[in-house]
Amino acid sequence: MRTRVSRTLPAAAVVVLAALTAIPAPAAAAVREPVPYAAPVDRAAPVDHPTYIVTVRRDLDPADVARLVGVTPVHVYDHTLHGFAARLDPAQVAALRSLPGVEAVEEDAAASAG
């Protein structure tokens, strides 16, 4: 008895498709989508105070360091940078620069490569 290819091919395709959909996909690591950088804006802070990027040692919590000088961070960094961004007055900048564990206090500005 001869089987026609035209009848068995669609049936085989259905079986293969059903088998593929039954196999669970491997668990992928959670990857966050990159977010375009926008200079942080703290609406509660006075507009005349510039935004600073404060980098702290890895063993310190950036939010705790900000609280030490009475600052509410507009953003806390925990991957490439370890620190926070906040609007700071000159006294807060000086206080942060004198704290042990604070590695850098830099005014936020546009940056470009090249």
Rank of each mutant, 00 (worst) to 15 (best):
V56E: 00
R32V: 10
P36H: 05
A22F: 09
D78V: 06
A66R: 06
M1K: 01
V14D: 04
G101D: 12
P90Q: 14
P50R: 11
V71E: 10
V105S: 02
A25Q: 15
V41H: 11
P100I: 12
D59Y: 15
Y37C: 03
A66C: 15
A39Y: 08
R2E: 10
H49C: 03
D64A: 15
P40G: 08
A86R: 04
P26V: 13
V41P: 00
Y77R: 05
V71S: 08
L81F: 14
R7H: 05
E33L: 06
V71R: 10
A25E: 13
P50V: 09
A39K: 12
A110D: 13
L60V: 10
A85R: 04
V76M: 02
A28R: 08
H75E: 09
V47D: 08
R7W: 08
A85I: 02
L20C: 07
Q92H: 07
A45M: 02
T72N: 06
V74P: 00
V65Q: 13
T72G: 05
P100C: 07
V93A: 04
A91I: 02
R57C: 00
L99E: 15
A85L: 06
A113I: 13
S112F: 08
G70C: 15
G83A: 07
D108V: 12
V54T: 06
A95L: 04
P10Y: 12
P100E: 04
D89Y: 11
V31Q: 03
V35F: 02
P100G: 04
A66P: 07
V76R: 05
